[in-house]
């Protein structure tokens, strides 16, 4: 799905990533580990095409890439529903939305403006997007942060669901998760 060769990246002459080599196969779930500041987020941003000032090669066969960053890309002044439907990543049927909202227990807040929601609820909104979207490669930066146990299980199931469809997933997290097929430590 994606192949990284001799990838290096530096910020103001300070090397952040040095000579990375790895490969991700279809239907593989990779758990990206590392200390704070080890360049996990940066690596995901490079793989998703947000940062392109790196050395080395990133070869990808993924037709489309789903990126979930630290900043969720949600608009405070829009409703939950608008935030989901007008998201650049939304590529599913509109009908599937209400079912997904029910699953994440957000159905009652469909028309609520986002600034009324807590951090955890916002996270959930962006995870509904993750649940609905059909992509080849998912790059998730801290998808489990700010979530309760129930939410964590939902995400694990979602990730498995995407895996069964043949997509690959790379996610970062500080805790251990048994869904991953492989761990990659930076």
């Amino acid at each position: 799905m994606i192949k990284v060769e001799n990838l290096s990246y530096s910020f103001n002459d300070f090397p952040l990533l040095e000579n990375l080599n790895f490969e991700v196969n279809p239907s593989e779930i990779i758990h990206l580990k590392g200390e704070n500041g080890s360049g996990k987020s940066t690596l995901l941003k490079i793989l998703s095409g947000i940062l392109n000032n790196f050395q080395g090669k990133v070869l990808s066969t993924a037709k489309n890439v789903f990126f979930l960053g630290h900043n969720l890309g949600l608009k405070d002044s829009l409703s939950v529903k608008d935030n989901l439907l007008l998201d650049y990543r939304f590529n599913s049927e509109v009908d599937s939305l209400s079912e997904a909202l029910k699953l994440f227990e957000l159905n009652s807040m469909k028309e609520t403006k986002l600034f009324n929601l807590s951090q955890g609820q916002r996270k959930k909104v962006s995870l509904v997007q993750l649940f609905l979207s059909k992509y080849d490669l998912f790059l998730l930066d801290e998808p489990f942060a700010n979530l309760d146990q129930k939410g964590i299980e939902l995400i694990e199931n979602t990730i498995r669901h995407h895996q069964n469809r043949g997509s690959s997933v790379i996610f970062t997290s500080h805790e251990d998760h048994n869904i991953s097929s492989r761990e990659l430590v930076l």
Binding site: G49, V65, F67, G69, H70, N71, G73, D87, Y88
Partner: peptide, 13 residues
């Protein structure tokens, strides 16, 4: 830029 939408735009290609 601040809320992360720009990341998604750049990632969309």
């Amino acid at each position: 830029f601040k809320d992360g939408s720009l990341d998604l735009v750049l990632a969309s290609g």
